[in-house]
């Protein structure tokens, strides 16, 4: 079942580490966001702490869009998307492979950019910060599970990037808003009772998006 998914994951990772196309572009873009917001707006530390979670997720999702676009752009090149449609496997397996590679690249990028975010916004590291791990995981998985299938839809069109944005944003917005709220709670050190139910809600959306995408991917590969 997972043979093809792992083959796709390995292939994508190998290509990414060789070219560093996605991670480097995502990292530079995020760095730019942090620099602009940190040095352009002269606001108090309190206000900065208020907007920091939003900024972090702006950096994640806008950079993530680049990763999603890139993910299927490499498949469209040389007709590899057609080769995928010819593979003796379910579309779902191909979806899992692409989903895993996009998610892993995005998580690696998040791990690289987060320390810079902490430095720029002078955040205090504490044990409570570990609660960010499930938040980042859940938010990222929601974004990439939906983004992977929509990226596969958009890659067939001429305005791939525009279409991906138009399709993805309305659907993924609740997950991003909840992730920003959860991140805010962790950064402020004010994890209230609503933290876990909200995290669970993001997780539930992740499951729905992933399952639907898995089931529908066969139709995306067809002409």
């Amino acid at each position: 079942m997972m043979r093809t998914a792992l083959a796709i994951l390995k292939k994508d990772m190998r290509m990414e580490f060789r070219s560093k196309d996605s991670i480097l572009a995502m990292w530079i873009f995020s760095l730019l966001i942090f620099v602009i917001f940190n040095f352009t707006f002269e606001v108090s530390r309190l206000v900065m702490l208020e907007i920091a979670p939003g900024l972090l997720w702006v950096a994640f999702v806008f950079s993530g869009m680049f990763g999603l676009n890139q993910s299927f752009a490499i498949e469209k090149e040389n007709g590899n998307l057609r080769a995928m449609a010819l593979m003796p496997v379910d579309g779902g397996e191909i979806y899992i492979g692409k989903f895993l590679s996009v998610t892993l690249i995005m998580l690696m990028f998040e791990a690289l950019i987060f320390p810079i975010f902490i430095i720029f916004y002078d955040l205090q590291l504490s044990m409570g910060m570990f609660r960010l791990i499930p938040v980042l995981l859940a938010g990222t998985i929601g974004f990439t599970s939906l983004g992977t299938i929509l990226s596969a839809v958009a890659v067939h069109t001429r305005n791939q990037q525009v279409l991906l944005s138009l399709l993805l944003w309305p659907l993924v917005t609740p997950i991003i808003i909840w992730s920003v709220t959860l991140t805010g709670m962790v950064i402020d050190g004010e994890v209230t009772q609503s933290f876990y139910p909200l995290l669970l809600r993001v997780g539930a959306f992740d499951v729905i998006f992933f399952t639907l995408s898995y089931m529908l991917f066969d139709f995306i590969l067809e002409d």
Binding site: M15, S19, R82, A83
Partner: peptide
Amino acid sequence: VISHEMFLYGNL
């Protein structure tokens, strides 16, 4: 299938 499309990855 063999066509004018390569079905190959240039970066591999």
